[in-house]
Design a protein around this nucleic acid. Sequence first.
DNA 1: CAGTGGTCTAGACCACCTC
DNA 2: AGGTGGTCTAGACCACTGA
Lengths: 246, 246
Amino acid sequence: MVTLPSSHSPTLNPLYRQVIGLVMRSLESGEWKPGEVIPSETLLAARYGVSQGTVRKAIDELAAEHLLVRRQGKGTFVATHADPRIFSRFLRVAANDGDLQPLRSEPLGCWRVKAGSDICHALNVEEGASVMLVRRVVLSGEMPAIFDEVYLAADFFADLTQETLLAGDVSLYGLYESQFGVRVIRAEERVRAILADPVSARFLQVAEGEPLLLVERTTFSYSDRPVEFRRSIFSTRHLHYRNELV
Amino acid sequence: MVTLPSSHSPTLNPLYRQVIGLVMRSLESGEWKPGEVIPSETLLAARYGVSQGTVRKAIDELAAEHLLVRRQGKGTFVATHADPRIFSRFLRVAANDGDLQPLRSEPLGCWRVKAGSDICHALNVEEGASVMLVRRVVLSGEMPAIFDEVYLAADFFADLTQETLLAGDVSLYGLYESQFGVRVIRAEERVRAILADPVSARFLQVAEGEPLLLVERTTFSYSDRPVEFRRSIFSTRHLHYRNELV
DNA sequence: CAGTGGTCTAGACCACCTC
DNA sequence: AGGTGGTCTAGACCACTGA
């Protein structure tokens, strides 16, 4: 470890915080990839020159943030969006009557476009930069349920094509991981009420002027790097946006 | 402790889980009230017959759920809605331009009413039971921002009056604690888009037919006991509903 | 069976707060 | 000075997994 354990040195940062930093570095660098096991607590303790209990506390925090997943008897794993539990944590849509029909993604297109200033700002790229735009409809059963416009920083996702999207799942984040090596860890959402314009009305098969929910989401990877800006629009006739406060 | 520590007995529940249960019981019974200090870790360890480290782990979990708050050098406290940090955790409204004007609550009335079946179901009272209904407008600066209808189980809140509400804060939860001994710990929200009807249009000073956000919230106390059902309606012209996903 | 995470303990020292 | 929570360690044993 960088800092001496206890006797001297006024412990600028707790040891376990430093361990968290080192583990994060290995996650960011791709030394341990999504879905893989990381070394055991004993090994990490030896590697970092701290006690096993200190490593445990560090991993506890990272597991609480859902960056790692512990599995007793097997080891500690890097969280992955291939895991359906993580998918459902990022899906805030629920059916009004309780049972959500299975969702299926239907990509409508994928283009390289010049982004507006709001999107450039959200993605932290310079004004007027070109970005990838993906449009899709999410079907619930056979009915169109959600109309999505997804913007991605072009330097990371330049070779994204509609074919790639067709192969992918409802969640795009598994795709980002497997095809582009980008791991989504966090998102911010802003929800508003709007009236259906001609475009969204057509894709959602609702009347113009119908009230719709607009969910704007900015998605982040490690080090708060923005990955995606997304506008999702849906009618709340059959669905709603759910949230838990604690 | 009920279960023997380790050598025999196949440890049905971990000790620290049992400690969590015991601490929760003291919270529910009101032995330790919101804002008060609870006994030190050392004292609790002696009281429960476990090591200080085990008490620490139990308190760690309860602090993570925001039921307790630790303050180094001072002690561990029962969380309270008098604390503004907790208030902001339960307020998901933010200004579109970033700075939210100070909020002020203006109660419109307080009645005892027969609740519809949806509200009875949410509050877990029998069909047709009478409940308290509070109507209020929340002002942001000088403008009406949010129109609220709050339903409360009448057996707990029977002697609620408009005068009591006038004395209270923007957050009703501090009032529930201090006046009715009910501590809110959790809420579920369902968000939908609607069109302004005559009533909400008048209170929010918007045109009829304007798209509005409807936030339905069910609030719970200890043991998942429902406390409150609330409908909040606001225009997203200047405000939005914010959320963080992790 | 060996290896992993999960629990529990005991003891040391640090950092902060109050008197 | 004496109390509180915060960090760190070392060691023991339990519970689960897979070869």
